Simulated assay, not measured.
Amino acid sequence: MQKITMADVAKAANVSKSTVSQYLNKRYEYMSEETKKRIAQAIEELGYQPNFVARSLKQKSTSTIGVIVFNILHMLTTQVLRAIEDVCQERDFHVIVCNTDDDPEKEKKYIEMLRAKQVDGLIIFPTGRNYEWYEKMVNESFPLVFVDRMVPDLPVDAVLLDNYKAAKLAVDHLADVGYERIGIVTPPLVSYNIPRTERVEGFKLAVKARGLQVMDEYIVNLEIPCIKEGLTKLFRSGCPPQALFAINDLTLMEVLHFVQENQLRIPHDIALISIDDVPFASIYTPTLTTIAQPAFEMGRKAAERLFQKIERNNEEKEPQILRLEPVLKKRQSVSWRSNP
């Protein structure tokens, strides 16, 4: 079967090869509607498939970006990805998504693979443990944007939540309605996970600012599978917390499992607030008070920033750190506590 070429399309449409090339690259400035219609018809009738590899070599662009996420099961991740994909669709770019499970070795392999495929840029939810690879891309002026996390002392653009404000919103709302003994549930605190450390630090600062005591035993700092066991020990103590702050959707799920298994009543036995406005928050019984992250805005801003770096050949040296505003969604899992 003979391969259809651009010359065949040009002949069928009665135009030059350069005009067909301009059409394929969406450069329509001096092209009439009739010419565009003839070229489109010729492409369809002949079944012409552009050679994207040849185009990428000629244009020095693959029209592809890579997105490396640390956990595709997080609601934040899926929403950010959707927004990134929307921006890429507007620009006729393709997206390759890789999931690291927060494993630095997997992250390193994906960075190598995507660079080998000559993607035009990368958006990474960084594990934080591949500093030399991030630094190498910075030194090469490779377009790179971090999402949800940043890496200290590394000049890379980052888009993330204002985690201190999110924690303050949670504590202030609980304190405003009469809660004094407030606990926090988090996976293990590690230096490379910026959101966790900022949310816990923000929680402590907010508790102290309200004149309340930070209780070390109320900080449930465990791997996800161990959270229920930790909560069980805490609630068997003589003075359990009156309210819990779950720092993300995965910790929230463990808290809800614990509540259900121990037949606790929300908010009568324990008030509950979490970061990430999970889809079921407004239909759970009782409805769940949450701190919503502007996930779609995060994804769009990250993609737009990456395209700015691609189009300007990453000439800007000063990194931009965008901290987006959290939003408190008041629902029934936090109510007025008349007898604190």
Results as ranks from 00 to 15, higher is better:
residue 240 P to V: 11
residue 179 Y to K: 01
residue 238 G to S: 15
residue 199 R to K: 15
residue 192 Y to R: 00
residue 204 K to L: 01
residue 181 R to H: 10
residue 252 L to N: 13
residue 237 S to I: 03
residue 235 F to Q: 03
residue 201 E to C: 07
residue 238 G to Q: 14
residue 208 K to T: 12
residue 250 L to E: 14
residue 228 K to T: 10
residue 222 L to N: 09
residue 232 T to M: 11
residue 226 C to I: 00
residue 250 L to H: 13
residue 203 F to Q: 02
residue 181 R to G: 02
residue 201 E to H: 11
residue 191 S to K: 12
residue 185 V to I: 15
residue 221 N to R: 09
residue 178 G to I: 04
residue 230 G to H: 06
residue 198 E to V: 02
residue 248 N to C: 08
residue 223 E to N: 05
residue 180 E to F: 02
residue 233 K to L: 09
residue 206 A to I: 01
residue 215 M to R: 09
residue 204 K to P: 00
residue 221 N to C: 14
residue 180 E to T: 05
residue 202 G to Q: 08
residue 233 K to Q: 10
residue 235 F to C: 03
residue 182 I to S: 06
residue 208 K to P: 03
residue 221 N to W: 01
residue 251 T to V: 14
residue 238 G to H: 13
residue 222 L to T: 03
residue 178 G to F: 03
residue 209 A to T: 08
residue 241 P to L: 05
residue 216 D to S: 07
residue 206 A to L: 04
residue 194 I to H: 01
residue 233 K to F: 03
residue 184 I to M: 08
residue 206 A to N: 06
residue 238 G to E: 15
residue 219 I to P: 01
residue 233 K to N: 08
residue 220 V to R: 04
residue 181 R to C: 04
residue 248 N to A: 07
residue 226 C to F: 12
residue 211 G to Y: 06
residue 206 A to R: 00
residue 233 K to S: 11
residue 226 C to L: 14
residue 194 I to E: 11
residue 251 T to D: 15
residue 239 C to T: 15
residue 234 L to T: 03
residue 185 V to R: 15
residue 196 R to C: 08
residue 242 Q to W: 01
residue 188 P to G: 02
residue 236 R to G: 13
residue 203 F to L: 03
residue 228 K to S: 08
residue 183 G to S: 13
residue 215 M to I: 08
residue 216 D to Q: 05
residue 218 Y to M: 06
residue 207 V to E: 13
residue 186 T to P: 03
residue 195 P to S: 10
residue 194 I to N: 01
residue 197 T to H: 10
residue 185 V to T: 11
residue 213 Q to L: 14
residue 189 L to F: 14
residue 187 P to S: 11
residue 226 C to T: 02
residue 220 V to C: 08
residue 186 T to V: 15
residue 186 T to A: 15
residue 249 D to K: 05
residue 210 R to G: 03
residue 191 S to M: 07
residue 214 V to F: 13
residue 233 K to H: 07
residue 245 F to P: 02
residue 213 Q to D: 11
residue 198 E to F: 12
residue 178 G to P: 04
residue 205 L to S: 13
residue 212 L to F: 04
residue 229 E to D: 06
residue 206 A to G: 10
residue 196 R to M: 11
residue 219 I to Q: 07
residue 201 E to R: 14
residue 207 V to K: 10
residue 210 R to Q: 13
residue 225 P to Q: 05
residue 241 P to I: 04
residue 235 F to W: 07
residue 217 E to N: 07
residue 235 F to E: 03
residue 212 L to Q: 06
residue 211 G to M: 08
residue 235 F to T: 00
residue 230 G to C: 05
residue 219 I to S: 03
residue 189 L to T: 09
residue 185 V to M: 15
residue 230 G to R: 02
residue 183 G to E: 09
residue 216 D to C: 02
residue 251 T to Y: 12
residue 202 G to T: 06
residue 209 A to R: 12
residue 215 M to F: 10
residue 214 V to W: 12
residue 246 A to V: 11
residue 202 G to Y: 12
residue 235 F to M: 00
residue 224 I to F: 05
residue 211 G to E: 06
residue 215 M to W: 11
residue 193 N to L: 14
residue 196 R to A: 12
residue 226 C to N: 13
residue 247 I to H: 07
residue 233 K to R: 12
residue 235 F to Y: 15
residue 248 N to G: 07
residue 209 A to W: 12
residue 239 C to S: 14
